[in-house]
């Protein structure tokens, strides 16, 4: 099977090195190549995704959530919501997972150099943005301020909680999080993610915003950013549709003229603003 190396439809076996629990239903899996071959070096652009195949069960598009500078490993954060995701997060260390990819467009990290970076994430939407955060913190002098706005359903649904606290201690880095429902013991903010903008001093002309979360959240946040003076071309969103092949040939992830898997998942708001309002497109 010499073809397996080059055919993007063929999963390559990677092995689970570590699996850790983020929330009651969300897990982070760190994979390493099992063959050590050239295909197993990792390497991806922040924002890209892989297709993860669970032997005999099915395949899922999962964003890469690890550090892009780390070679020879790939990290994914998966929320268990169905049989395939449940099977995926049930893997133990040493078991293999099929990996195809990485696929898709990434966040505009190069284009954001010299500017402030505003990351707005909802729920598990923080996972595809974490590589951006790692990248900015690793190359701190190339970027202006880093602002991370994070909304989750409740405190127990927040992922990367320790890291959020650690990121907030970095120079020129502001982390604001909020939940929709807080118990009385919760000392943080309660309210929708758009309510966080009033705590920011945005420099609209020199800011790149990157959004990932439920579509309606991104739509509301993108509008809020526009109202605060950000140009649509400086706002990027990561879209989700049913991705099966990841190479633009199965047709499932079409969204208007776009195939989310190859033309996205990251799009400029300037290109898709009108489409976001179209129901059942």
């Amino acid at each position: 099977m010499a073809n397996a190396e080059i055919d993007p439809m063929m999963p390559r076996p990677w092995v689970v090195r570590r699996i850790s629990k983020e929330t009651p239903d969300t897990f982070t899996l760190a994979l390493e190549p099992s063959d050590g071959g050239p295909s197993g070096r990792g390497g991806f652009q922040p924002g890209q995704f892989s297709m993860l195949w669970v032997f005999g069960v099915g395949e899922l598009p999962i964003s890469i959530s690890g550090d892009p500078a780390e070679e020879g490993s790939l990290t994914y954060t998966v929320r268990s919501v169905g049989p395939a995701t449940q099977a995926l997060v049930s893997h133990g260390a040493g078991q293999s997972v099929g990996v195809r990819g990485p696929f898709g467009t990434g966040w505009p990290v190069a284009g954001a150099e010299g500017k402030d970076v505003v990351v707005v994430a909802g729920g598990i939407g923080l996972a595809p943005l974490r590589p951006v955060i790692y990248h900015v913190l690793r190359h701190r002098d190339r970027f202006g301020r880093l602002v991370i706005l994070y909304g989750a359903r409740s405190p127990r649904d927040m992922i990367y909680r320790k890291e959020l606290a650690a990121w907030a201690r970095h120079k020129d880095t502001q982390v604001l999080s909020t939940v929709d429902y807080g118990g009385v013991a919760w000392r943080g903010r309660v309210g929708v993610v758009t309510s966080l903008f009033k705590y920011l001093r945005l420099q609209p002309a020199r800011t790149t915003a990157m959004l990932c979360g439920p579509e309606i959240m991104m739509r509301l946040v993108a509008r809020e950013l526009a109202a605060r003076g950000l140009a649509a071309g400086d706002v990027y969103l990561s879209m989700e549709r049913n991705m099966k092949c990841a190479v633009g040939s199965c047709g499932h992830c079409q969204w208007g003229p776009h195939f989310i898997c190859k033309d996205g998942p990251v799009f400029s708001y300037a290109h898709i603003a009108a489409m976001l309002d179209r129901y059942e497109l």
Binding site: F55, G56, C250, G251, H252, Q254
Partner: peptide, 30 residues
């Protein structure tokens, strides 16, 4: 348009992956 289906044997140590025609008229498509 196509979709993929996974089959696994009863013993769980063999698996097949099939590609089949799919249609944007089905509910599952999107």
């Amino acid at each position: 348009c196509t979709t993929v289906e996974d089959d696994s044997g009863v013993t769980g140590d063999r698996a097949e992956r099939w590609r089949r025609w799919d249609s944007c008229f089905t509910m599952a498509f999107s």
